[in-house]
Design a protein around this nucleic acid. Structure first.
Length: 567
RNA sequence: GCGCCUGUAGCUCAGUCGGAUAGAGCAUCUGCCUUCUAAGCAGAGGGUCGCAGGUUCGAAUCCUGCCAGGCGUACCA
């Protein structure tokens, strides 16, 4: 609806400039695209344009003078049919300030009520396929808080892009082979021996967490026997392999459950070991070699990444014959390109940012367009309990897991807090605040508005003994209080916020918008009673409350947060 | 050294393509429940937008240099 209002005003401005040229008031100029902003100050109307300032030098008049000429021409065109009721030239800077008619806002509100659940959708994505890959943690331990934020940020952006008309899928890339998996197997194996009464020495770079002991105990007490043989009868190499396979399988199941409990559903899981088994890694190394992008040095195979923007060349295959992580990652990303996505988005932690150049370089070396691959670095979070900072040492297994955060604050608060700040910003996450049931807590503040509206509906049914009216058939013209028009204006903005957030990957715009909307509603609630003696006014206000509820629940559903009917 | 991110009110942070007197929440102070949920509302105080230049009619925003913090700079992942 707002785009329509924008278009109509742009048209008025364009016509006024042509008219000014025809009457020799201003020289003819080609106009830049008209930008309309919502002024902060209430006295500046509903929408403002800076066009007079933009063209001032070209028309050889001051911005204020230009604005005055244009405003007076537009003013003459104002009638009952136009979307604006007033235009004013700001005498200090040269803004053109427009006041939109209440009728235009009522039309927008009526439209919203006719498309419940679809307000906020757009076709900006034109059905293009987008793949979002996130979390992708090694199955070597529980998900951490860092994974939690990536999961929330990735999942919410996926929801946003879907709203904006993209065909979205979510994917988890499973690093289920290589050095870390071997260490996992050895860690569990050592703990298993320890449980059997042996003295063992767990090297510092092995996995230290208690969950490793838990896995070892499951092997021991469950009497798990690989191929019918006792683990103790196997040669250590085989026993370690078995422990690794068992542990990564169990941990993967745990990760899947954690993600489900966090509200994240991956469409696809891609396994690194399968990519290797299918020969995709050797194939990609061969193709890089064929393109002259590799060379042998010191017994290792190198990728000429410095020729593609990286600061130095990188090893693909180590001296001992093992593949490095980048080799399978190159193969994995080429495989993704082959699936026909117009855009692929990876979410990584900040410790991986040095990796971007070499991966994009590899895509370029393979003749693929690196611009289709967008790597988003999600900054870390520091957890607090009030003022107390919580320890975060992963090495000692002392980290707070995503599971613990979920247990402490619940899915709604966790997801909301993770996306509330720009993903580029380091996040201070106060668990105590997230748990509070007061207005300091933004999640509750927004959810409360939704529940409160529901309670108005309940009251209406109880008092009148009638069901809610059909909101699509209500005369909204009596909504004329400033507080009502302000609320409608905010509702009308929602689709634009969703679109901007999706296209610029700025999830945090949604919580910010919802908090502003909730504030306007709470203020309105204190200012005007919905249920009054006037049945027409009551119906119109119920409709406005319903529209607010629809937008809040749609906004929260983008965040994957529930919209409770009562609190 | 080089690369990426960050620096805005006491604290946590918004600020879209450069636009009007830089905004919000928390914290502090003052009010509002016989009426739809006080998990709410109304109001007050609080600023050298890290520093210095530059571009511009106009800079928190763009450019350059510097300062501070975080992360990275592996034949680990």
């Amino acid at each position: 609806m707002l785009p329509e209002i924008n278009d109509r005003i742009s048209e008025l401005i364009g016509n006024a400039f042509r008219e000014a040229a025809a009457q020799n008031l201003l020289p003819p100029v080609s106009l830049p695209s008209v930008e309309l902003k919502i002024p902060r100050e209430k006295g500046h109307g509903d929408l403002a344009s800076n066009i007079a300032m933009k063209v001032a030098s070209r028309v050889k008049r001051s911005p204020v003078e230009t604005a005055k000429i244009i405003a007076s021409l537009i003013e003459k065109r104002i009638s009952r049919k136009t979307i604006i009721s007033r235009v004013e030239a700001d005498p200090r800077k040269g803004f053109l300030n427009f006041t939109v008619t209440p009728g235009a806002f009522h039309d927008a509100l009526r439209h919203l009520l006719r498309v419940p659940g679809h307000w906020g959708e757009s076709r900006a994505g034109e059905g293009e396929k987008v793949l979002l890959e996130f979390v992708s943690a090694n199955p070597t331990g529980p998900l951490t808080v860092a994974h939690g934020r990536q999961a929330a940020v990735g999942d919410v952006l996926a929801n946003l892009l879907a709203k904006a008309g993209y065909r979205v899928s979510r994917e988890y890339y499973l690093n289920d082979r290589g050095r870390q998996m071997k260490i996992l197997g050895e860690s569990v194996y050592l703990r298993w021996r320890e449980l059997r009464g042996e003295e063992v020495d767990l090297p510092a770079d092995y996995y230290q967490g208690d969950y490793i002991i838990g896995l070892a105990r499951r092997i021991l007490e469950g009497g798990l026997k690989p191929a019918g043989r006792e683990l103790s009868e196997l040669p250590p190499e085989e026993a370690i392999d078995y422990c690794g396979t068992f542990a990564s399988g169990a941990l993967l199941e745990m990760i899947k459950k954690e993600l489900r409990d966090f509200g994240v559903e991956m469409e696809t899981w891609v396994s690194e070991s399968e990519l290797v088994a299918e020969g995709r890694v050797t194939a990609v190394l061969r193709d890089l070699a064929a393109r002259g992008s590799t060379y042998e040095k010191d017994g290792a195979l190198w990728f000429r990444s410095s020729a593609y923007g990286d600061e130095k060349d990188r090893v693909l295959r180590k001296k001992n014959g093992d593949l490095t992580y980048i080799s399978s990652d190159i193969a994995y990303h080429r495989e993704k390109y082959g699936r026909g996505y117009s855009e692929m988005i990876d979410f990584w932690g900040p410790d991986h940012h040095g990796y971007i150049a070499r991966l994009k370089g590899a895509m370029k070396a393979l003749g693929l367009n690196p611009a289709r691959l967008d790597i988003i670095i999600v900054q870390l979070s520091t957890l607090y309990e009030g003022k107390k900072k919580l320890s975060m040492s992963t090495r000692m297994g002392e980290f707070i897991s995503l599971r613990q955060v979920l247990d402490k604050v619940g899915k709604d608060a966790a997801r909301y807090f993770f996306v509330r700040r720009r993903k580029e910003s380091h996040l201070d996450f106060d668990l105590e605040l997230a748990r509070k049931k007061t207005n300091d807590n933004p999640v509750y503040y927004v959810q409360y508005a939704h529940a409160r509206i529901n309670s108005i509906f309940k009251k209406f049914r109880a008092v009148t003994g009638r069901p809610l009216p059909d909101f699509t058939k209500i005369d909204l013209a009596c909504l004329s209080e400033p507080a009502e028009l302000e609320l409608i204006k905010k509702l009308v903005l929602f689709p634009g916020v969703v679109k901007t957030a999706a296209l610029t990957h700025q999830n945090h715009l949604i919580p910010a918008y919802l908090e502003e909307l909730a504030a306007i509603f709470h203020s309105y609630y204190n200012h005007c009673r919905v249920i009054t003696d006037d049945p027409d006014l009551t119906a119109a206000r119920l409709a406005l409350a319903r529209a607010t509820q629809l937008v809040i629940s749609e906004g929260l559903s983008i965040l994957g947060v529930s919209a409770p009917d009562s609190m």
